[in-house]
Write a protein that binds this DNA or RNA. Sequence first.
DNA 1: CTTTCTCAAATTGTCGACAATCTTGGCACC
DNA 2: GGTGCCAAGATTGTCGACAATTTGAGAAAG
Lengths: 232, 232
Amino acid sequence: MSNQSVTNESIEPQNQVTTAVDQVFVELRRAIVEGDVAQGSKISEPELAKRYGVSRATLRDALNRLEACNLVERKANVGCRVVALTPERLIEVYQVRAALEGLACRLAAQNMTDEEIANIKALLNKHLNEQRVKEGESYYQEAGDLDFHYRIIKGSKNEHLFNLLYHDLYQLIRMYRVQMGMTGPRVSKAFDEHLAIINAIENRDGELAEMLMKRHISYSMNNIENKFNAAQ
Amino acid sequence: MSNQSVTNESIEPQNQVTTAVDQVFVELRRAIVEGDVAQGSKISEPELAKRYGVSRATLRDALNRLEACNLVERKANVGCRVVALTPERLIEVYQVRAALEGLACRLAAQNMTDEEIANIKALLNKHLNEQRVKEGESYYQEAGDLDFHYRIIKGSKNEHLFNLLYHDLYQLIRMYRVQMGMTGPRVSKAFDEHLAIINAIENRDGELAEMLMKRHISYSMNNIENKFNAAQ
DNA sequence: CTTTCTCAAATTGTCGACAATCTTGGCACC
DNA sequence: GGTGCCAAGATTGTCGACAATTTGAGAAAG
């Protein structure tokens, strides 16, 4: 499994979904991220409990976890709403993301093994070829991008950083990308940026890798922000 | 309340504790952070539920929140343990903290009002005088330090960053500081560092402020790390 | 004596019902 | 006609009991 691409599902392989709360949590999270339930809409506990065929206490538990992921907001004795995707919040989230993934890059430059680095380079080449063949097919770009960032973060060897990025930030970022229709643009440019980053890591130049990653994420944010403004 | 010191309790004034889950959560969090329940120890749901005079479902809800704060770890069908404070985890947490508070400083330099900055400077002078009078009385240093960092983070005007630091990181950091006996050393040095940071912010020099804050936090980590090694 | 299997006790996960709180529509009063 | 209060409905918070899973002690086999 070392040099093979991972899909969104296989990105969390260690947490095998066993309990009912887990299943509802994963299912609801997907529904929110992909827009099956509208952003800003109120969540009715009895209704959703019935839809997922589960007790209300179980559903409430799942909602608590979604709140920890910043995907829903909750007020005592009032209820639960899906978060609203505002441009202001987009900027806030991406500022945090840039700082954390910049750190991840710097740590990766000093902690990744040569083998791990080689695997990422092979992965990039593989994705580049696939992308040339399936021009316009955006899924691979989306999955490939996630995969690249995933490996850098893992390569930092900082468990706490990993959890923070994946549990508290990444689903929210995916939500912005999916619902803004971030499918397949900026592909070749992003590939070049990825390449420059992994090269810096290969040269063990943590400072440069951090800077390149921050810039890469900044570009990505501008891209989404433009879509926002275009759609008003 | 603008130029007045805040205690640990008043740091979260907006979330007035109303529901039973909130009360148990706050109480249990305090007990864990201050070491009333030993790190690494297993948590028995029925026992704690009885002790706090609350249902098991309610207590489980509180445990979920503690898990989101990284204060307990949970495995399905197995149970819940208080986190173990290892030196490795200390380093991980402080690397993340430095990146996030560095960002907070940079943002604060561009977003804080002149009045907010003046209030922090007044606060530092006030704490310095108090510290001179009550030499050795460590609580004020602890509270003053928390207060300073709190205001910088608030001053970043980034809500997401604030939540991340305060909900997912700060209680864990307090846990390290309290249980390692971080009481009152490094006081005058920390004051000088705080002063340098707020001066950089006053000059709207975000880059310098970020660097100083990262260094300040790095020193703070080394201090705790030394205690660790001394205690083995 | 060590290892493995079994089974019972304890612990966790899930559920349906009850109590407390908030919302909303309508009525009285100004 | 507008404003404020009240009651009924709906929604959330909390509880105790039942089901599923894990664990650990003890017996039996090697």
